[in-house]
Design a protein around this nucleic acid. Structure first.
Lengths: 208, 208
DNA sequence: GATGTAATATGTCAATCGTATTGAAAAGAG
DNA sequence: CTCTTTTCAATACGATTGACATATTACATC
């Protein structure tokens, strides 16, 4: 057997190079050659690990989702146990918004991928399933929070879940410098305050 | 003088062809040649009206914003006078979301443009200014609604404006068939209900 | 109806793209 | 050492791109 290389590791290295190209120059510049140059290897080497450009993009996106989940899991772990549902949702949202370098890289990757999904059946299915899965996770948290009396039972879990995911709509405002990152956080907290305000207690109060 | 053509009209025809290409095949396929083919003219003709591809894209995007504003103005006019601020905001949001063909075309054009703005200083400035202007309009409505006692004075106008704009974050959920258009409308109405519920009257009540 | 110019079509060019092909290092197995 | 297979660099090829140049068509004006 010849020199053995960790394929997964190489693919992740290339994927991160692709992230950087997408973040700095846009997905239009994410060609096999330019990603290879960013990664410091020949484009023949990239082809060795990804048969086609689409396969490279798909891996880079899956890797981005995975890394985002890991960041969320890590930050929830930091909170300590048991995490309050409000804090879990806040972590999820702040990791999906481009509020720090890692999150911005995966956020831009995600945005480019959603656009791609609109015209590519394969990518559409993958993106849809991933998004639907993330949505289910959030709805589970919302439902449990209602059961645990953190959220008013008058709220519709499905609608509130959709509104929480809608907060990613702050992304363009942040990216285009229309609002400051701090304003985005304020908006997220304001929405969570509203959601976790029980109708029987109109004024924000401690939940725990 | 030879044959005279309405330049503005020709440019709008080309812009609409570009919208269709962007909607059906993505902005990556919005080349001068393909847009020309979609418009049923030669690529030389397109270059007669747009010196560069970027000029074509810029015009198509400005035209999309303009048409969206016109749709909003038309639908507000249909409501009758004076329009309730809640209705005005609802119209704005429903025309920004991809809930019908015209809105979907301009929405996809807008999404592609935002991505482009992240790596093109010229487009960044234009997009930022347009978005900031739209945001100002909404904040004006919110502030007036607070003055007119339609929205609780406890609400922060800037934050509430950001949250309203964030509702465009429903777009990916709609486009990727994660939620139905009806669910998006329900979410918008739910958010508006919350916003227009005066704290002194915890239960939803008629405002007019 | 001759003429000049706007409108439109067609052609060319260098650059870049994705992908296929080829071959040379490299290194464990015999 | 020799063989075999992985790694990866180099190159070729056909297609497409934006931009520019050229050619043709059509019409308003004199």
């Amino acid at each position: 057997m010849p020199k053995q290389v960790d394929h997964r590791e190489r693919r992740e290295t290339i994927a991160r190079a692709l992230w950087r190209v997408v973040e700095q120059r846009g997905i239009a510049h994410a060609s096999v050659r330019e990603v290879a140059q960013e990664a410091g290897i020949s484009h023949g080497a990239v082809q060795h690990y990804f048969a086609t450009r689409e396969e490279m993009l798909v891996f880079a996106m899956d890797f981005a989702s995975e890394q985002t989940s890991l960041r969320v899991a890590e930050r929830i772990r930091e909170i300590g146990s048991p995490p309050h549902p409000r804090d879990m949702l806040r972590v999820m949202l702040t990791e999906m918004l481009p509020l720090h370098p890692d999150a911005r890289a995966t956020s831009r990757m995600s945005a480019a991928y959603v656009l791609e999904a609109l015209h590519n059946a394969n990518i559409h299915t993958r993106t849809r399933d991933g998004l639907a899965h993330g949505r289910d996770l959030i709805e589970q948290i919302v439902r449990q929070a209602i059961t645990d009396d953190h959220i008013s039972p008058d709220r519709d879990p499905a609608t509130e879940t959709n509104l929480l995911l809608a907060l990613t709509g702050l992304t363009p405002l942040i990216e285009l410098d229309v609002i400051e990152p701090q304003e985005a956080l304020t908006a997220v907290d304001q929405h969570l305050d509203q959601l976790f305000t029980n109708r029987t207690r109109p004024h924000p109060a401690a939940d725990a």
